[in-house]
Structures are given as structure tokens and as C-alpha cells.
């Protein structure tokens, strides 16, 4: 079985940042693993400008940000494994890796999970009606538009005005779709003010506050939704062929669920908690990387010190 000192799962913004920081802090045996074909995570599909103000002082695109973070790993000995999924992690500090070249076990001393978030789906909402096609999460719609240059549909309603909802509203409109409205159940848009002013406001797309989708229509493809105004209870049927949902992100810790909180495990980036800005995810991940490095260094000096110290306080 192969071994490494530090395994980082996920090569998005947080994973790359943690890897660079850990390397800089002296970790020399480090593996960064990702299922995708290239590092960058969700940044790869964020082709709009608006990232990196805190770190770079200027605004760059997601792919540019990813290239920058990747350049921080160049001339290091960080081993980057792409197109490699981690199937499982066990309590005896082993990860099972799968790729087209084979299956292998990788032992590690410490693990940083930087697997990001998954998007909540429409199924989790109390939405009635049929279960037609034409319903996308915002991340799916973004990947479709920016990486595959396809539209999810023509007549689009967006549910949720988080940052991604406002960005996708403008992006889909610009790509030629008709974005009917963005519905938001709260009394204020959900994302950052600057995203509202940059994307949603100039697009002219109506923002329907205190409004949600309660029912779907269509036996095959979506043909419409029912909107409910939460204060008045007024219901409006909106014909549309596509619904894009922005209804929440859930840190994806499935790989370590059931392991408790062992002292060799830490979380970085959106897998730790959902960050509003990539910059803050990167900064947090860097400190997680440094902490992992010092924990590894400490255990190198005297691998038995921790049980001994614990014993002092028993």
C-alpha cells in the first residue's frame, strides 16, 4: 500500500490553497486528489469576473483564479492526481482511490477534506405537482452554459436570489434565453449587493420578493410553475420550460460521515462552511494547510507526545 503524510481531497480553490500552504510550511509528502479532469473545482465554470478582490486587488474570472492557485503548486512536489475519485475513507487512515488506471489504497497521516458543497435539489422542497424534466440546479445550468455552451431551455424562471441565482439570471439572458423572473422567498435578494448591482439590476429581470414556487406542471418537460406570494397568498401560473433552483448548499462530507471527529481530519473551504467569497475560502484553507503541517511536524518530533500529554490531564 502507498502512503503519504498529507492527503487533500478536492483540488478546488480550498484544496489547492491548503496544499500550497502545507508545502510552504514543510510538508514534503503530499497528495492532492480530484475526480475532475483538471484542478479548479467549481471555479472552472465561473467564467464571470468578480473574484479575487481581497487577494489580488483586482477582479478576475474563476478559471484565471484557478490558474493562479495552480501556479502556486508548480515547482513543488505536491502530487496532483486528477480523474481520480476517492471511494471511501476508513478510520485506520486509508483512502480507497479509483481511476481508469486502477484501484488503489493510499495510507495517510493527516487528511484535509476540501470536497466543497453539493447543491440542494428541488426534491427537498415542499413543491407539489408533477416531476417533469427541465429543472436544473444553478450549478448544473452554469456548467451547461459556460463549459458546454448549451442552454438549459428558452423560457426560464429562477428560484432563489443567492449570488449564483443573480449571476445565472444575467448569464442566461445574455446567452439568448428569456429569463422571466427571479423568485426569492425572503424580503431582500439573497446574494451580495455588488452581485445584485452588477448582474441582476442591469439585466432588468424582475426580482419577485416574498415569492416561491409551490407547484410544477408538465407530464414530460416542464410547462409551467405556480408562484405564491407569501404575504398575500396570491398565486400566479407562469408558463415556462425551465426552472433553475438556487435553494441552498450543503457541505459535502459524505466521505467521512460515520468517522466521528478524529484528530487527523480537518475541513477546508466550503466543505468546512459555506463562504461568500473565494478569497475567504482560500485564506481559511491556507491556515488549515499550515495547521496540518505543524501537526505533522509535531508528531514527527515525538509521535507519542500527544497520548502522553493527554495522560497528564486524565
Amino acid at each position: 500500500m502507498e502512503h503519504c503524510e498529507l492527503l487533500i481531497i478536492g483540488s478546488g480553490a480550498a484544496g489547492m490553497s491548503a496544499a500550497a500552504a502545507a508545502w510552504k510550511a514543510g510538508v514534503r509528502d503530499l497528495v492532492l486528489v480530484d475526480g475532475a479532469s483538471a484542478p479548479g473545482g467549481i471555479l472552472r465554470q465561473c467564467s464571470h469576473r468578480g473574484f479575487g478582490r481581497a487577494v489580488f486587488g483586482s477582479e478576475i474570472t474563476g478559471p484565471e483564479y484557478a490558474s493562479f492557485l495552480l501556479s502556486g503548486l508548480q515547482n513543488t512536489g505536491v502530487r496532483l492526481l486528477t480523474e481520480t475519485e476517492v471511494l471511501s475513507v476508513t478510520g485506520n487512515r486509508r483512502a480507497l482511490l479509483s481511476s481508469r488506471t486502477g484501484l488503489r489504497e493510499l495510507g495517510f497521516q493527516r487528511l484535509i477534506l476540501a470536497a466543497g458543497c453539493r447543491e440542494r435539489s428541488i426534491g427537498s422542497l415542499p413543491v407539489t405537482g408533477t416531476r417533469p424534466s427541465g429543472v436544473f440546479t444553478a450549478g448544473q445550468a452554469q456548467e451547461l452554459l459556460n463549459l458546454r455552451h448549451r442552454l438549459p431551455g428558452r423560457e426560464i424562471l429562477i428560484l432563489g436570489s443567492g449570488d449564483l441565482g443573480m449571476i445565472m439570471a444575467a448569464g442566461l439572458q445574455e446567452a439568448g434565453a428569456h429569463v422571466i423572473a427571479v423568485a426569492e422567498q425572503e424580503d431582500h435578494y439573497g446574494g451580495l449587493a455588488r452581485n445584485y448591482h452588477r448582474f441582476l439590476e442591469p439585466s432588468g429581470i424582475p426580482l419577485l420578493l416574498r415569492t416561491t414556487v409551490t407547484e410544477l406542471y408538465g407530464s414530460g418537460r416542464l410547462t409551467g410553475v405556480l408562484l405564491r406570494q407569501l404575504d398575500t397568498g396570491a398565486q400566479t401560473h407562469i408558463p415556462c420550460d425551465t426552472l433553475v433552483t438556487v435553494v441552498g448548499l450543503i457541505p459535502d462530507r459524505t466521505l467521512v460521515s460515520g468517522l466521528g471527529s478524529p484528530d487527523w481530519l480537518s475541513f477546508a473551504g466550503n466543505c468546512h462552511h459555506v463562504h461568500e467569497l473565494v478569497d475567504s475560502a482560500v485564506a481559511e484553507a491556507a491556515s488549515v494547510g499550515r495547521l496540518a503541517a505543524s501537526a505533522l511536524a509535531a508528531s514527527k518530533h515525538d509521535p507519542d507526545i500527544f497520548p502522553e500529554v493527554r495522560g497528564l490531564y486524565r
Binding site: 424534466s133 448549451r150 438549459p152 434565453a177 414530460g220 420550460d241
Partner: peptide, 22 residues
């Protein structure tokens, strides 16, 4: 074509728009 892929047959097209199918 990818545009012709459906969720459950019939008109349950998954994508829409790129070739004017919607």
C-alpha cells in the same frame, strides 16, 4: 444528439434550446 436525450421518453427532453427543440 444530447438535445434528444429525455428523462422518461416522450417530450421530457432534458436540455432545450440549442437546436430549437423547445
Amino acid at each position: 444528439s444530447e438535445e434528444a436525450v429525455t428523462q422518461s421518453g416522450g417530450d421530457s427532453l432534458v436540455y432545450g434550446g440549442a437546436d430549437g427543440t423547445l
